[in-house]
C-alpha cells in the first residue's frame, strides 16, 4: 500500500517556519507522504493541494496569533469543494495571550476542526491519533 497523503502548512500571513520544518520531518518519518506548502498559505492553496494529492488530512499551523481569523471558514470551503471527509487538524499558538487551552480548543472544534493542539503537544501522540482517525474514516 502506498503512503497516505497529508497536506501541511502555516496559514495566513504567518511566516514562522521552524515548527513547520519539524512537522514535515516528523510526519514523513512516521510514514506519511507530506505535501508541505510552507509558510503564508491561503485556505485556497490548502484545498487545491488536498484535492490534487487526494490527501486524507490537512494539518494547519498558526503561530502568530491571528489563528482565529485565518482558520475560520476552512471547513465550509472544504465541503464546498467536495472534501467532505477530510480531517482537519490545527495547532500552534492559536490565539493571542493567555486564553486557557480548553476554551481555545472549543472554539476551533466549533469551526469544524477535528483536533486542536497547543504548542507543547506530543508529536508522537499526534501521529497515532492521525493514523487512528484516518483508519476510522476509511471504514
Amino acid at each position: 500500500m502506498s503512503a497516505t497523503n497529508i497536506v501541511l502548512g502555516v496559514i495566513g500571513f504567518d511566516c514562522h517556519s521552524v515548527g513547520n520544518k519539524i512537522l514535515e520531518a516528523w510526519f514523513t518519518e512516521s510514514g506519511f507522504k507530506v505535501t508541505n506548502l510552507g509558510v503564508m498559505v491561503s485556505q485556497e492553496e490548502f484545498i487545491a493541494a488536498a484535492i490534487e494529492t487526494d490527501a486524507k488530512a490537512i494539518l494547519v499551523s498558526s503561530l502568530y496569533g491571528h489563528g482565529e481569523i485565518d482558520c475560520a471558514g476552512l471547513r465550509e470551503k472544504c465541503i464546498e469543494k467536495g472534501l467532505e471527509d477530510i480531517l482537519l487538524y490545527v495547532g500552534g499558538n492559536l490565539v493571542v495571550g493567555k486564553t486557557p487551552f480548553p476554551q481555545v480548543e472549543e472554539k476551533f472544534l466549533k469551526m469544524g476542526y477535528d483536533r486542536v493542539f497547543g504548542p507543547d503537544c506530543s508529536l508522537e501522540k499526534v501521529s497515532e491519533m492521525l493514523k487512528a482517525d484516518i483508519a476510522a474514516k476509511a471504514k
Binding site: S2, A3, N5, K33, T35, I51, E52, T53, D54, A55
Partner: peptide
C-alpha cells in the same frame, strides 16, 4: 490530467 502521483484518482 489531474492528481499528483499517488494522489487523486477519482
Amino acid at each position: 490530467c489531474g492528481g499528483t502521483d499517488g494522489g487523486n484518482e477519482r
